[in-house]
Design a protein around this nucleic acid. Structure first.
Lengths: 217, 217
DNA sequence: GTTAGTTTGTCAACGGCGTTGACAAACGTT
DNA sequence: AACGTTTGTCAACGCCGTTGACAAACTAAC
């Protein structure tokens, strides 16, 4: 009964996801989304309580894209690494929601799926329950945390990003050599390459530490 | 020459910091800040290029509280650990500002001070420039990132926090043992203790990995 | 001492944002 | 045919950051 709906939660979320994918997260506004689905912006409020609501749903849809399957022949470390890299990639695609999701685990299906995959690999590696939990927390904090940090810049075009990193590196280089000798000395190596490569280097260091625990029990 | 100034960068930043401390970071708008300092909102643009500019300064002012001095007799690892723990503590004390600071490096005095202290310790440890930079990035990503994650919960009372962690742990325990065996097995160890202890465990694992690099060159 | 130039704060306004409440259209039910 | 309900439309509210024209208040030059 009632006027027949031309919109639905599903179609709106799909349009929103497309909007984010094509024009970035900053394009996800109620007005632009209304235009995208071809209706008045306020009609969206018939299907979502609030804009944050809609963003959560879009975020969950993006989380679905995290593939947790292990590649044949990969050991636990390679698999864990791949899952973290993939999780980060998906989080960077939706920076605004990263803060919301990282504020508290959603404990929804997709997050549980990722958790299970990580813990399964750690179990396969022979870690005891408490060691596995500690390693899991460390991995998640680094992955989700660094994604939250990098998200704002990740949403900008590649050229802008590179210019920003160059600017930062130059600022370190131009510090006083007497007051900040270590910064000046390391300036050439700071913020070099992409944020992704820096994250992966950090992840490798953490995995080194976790691996070392493997042999001590 | 020119009309005498009634405002200054310093007084504006002080007022902004007070505004954030009392009403949260969401209260830091050009209009409310104008009202706080008793001038027209647009007058602030005589002293700051943009609002993001001002936010960076406010963020850096909060970083003043981070003590980077090494304790006598401590080695590089203990000092680095202490700096990271202190940085995290300051970030968590101003949870709403943590997001603001973590969005992008402020590249202002206090952040440079912390960076210099960390890089100096890593240099003291014998790391080459690129190794020191990689370790620095890893430490910052974990520290600032995990602070950004934990900040929302850290602002709530301890009782609420513990109850939340208990709830999460129970949810993992109540998963299907056939579908999520690893989660169920590790449930007793997940989200145990404080967020601080989890962070410090992660930090120790990362430092293990960094230390291992020390011997390989 | 008047004039010119510069700095600084004020004012009105722009275009954006999320959100609300009144209203009209289109349906199933009575 | 009348009713109640659902759904989209419309105008508007109060925020937001930011801009450009303008007035006030000082220094420097003539």
């Amino acid at each position: 009964m009632g006027r027949p709906a031309t919109l639905s939660r599903g179609s709106i979320i799909a349009a929103a996801a497309l909007l984010v994918r094509e024009h970035g997260v900053e394009a996800l506004t109620v007005r632009r989304l209304g235009e995208a689905v071809g209706c008045d912006p306020t009609a969206l409020y018939r299907h979502f309580e609030t804009m944050a609501d809609l963003e959560r749903e879009v975020g969950d849809r993006f989380l679905r894209a995290v593939d947790v399957r292990a590649r044949e022949g990969d050991d636990w470390r390679a698999t864990v690494r791949r899952i973290c890299v993939r999780l980060r990639r998906v989080q960077l695609r939706q920076p605004r929601l990263a803060a919301l999701v990282s504020a508290a685990p959603t404990r929804l299906a997709n997050e549980m799926r990722i958790t299970e995959a990580l813990l399964r690999e750690l179990d396969r590696a022979g870690f005891a329950g408490d060691q596995a939990a500690t390693a899991y927390h460390a991995l998640i904090e680094l992955t989700v945390g660094s994604a939250a940090i990098d998200a704002p810049l990740a949403s900008q075009p590649a050229g802008t990003r590179r210019r920003t990193y160059n600017d930062w590196r130059r600022e370190y280089a131009e510090l006083s050599p007497t007051e900040s000798p270590a910064s000046v000395a390391a300036a050439d190596h700071l913020y070099l390459g992409s944020a992704d490569s820096r994250f992966e280097a950090a992840l490798d260091l953490l995995l080194d530490g976790i691996s070392a625990q493997q042999r001590i029990h």
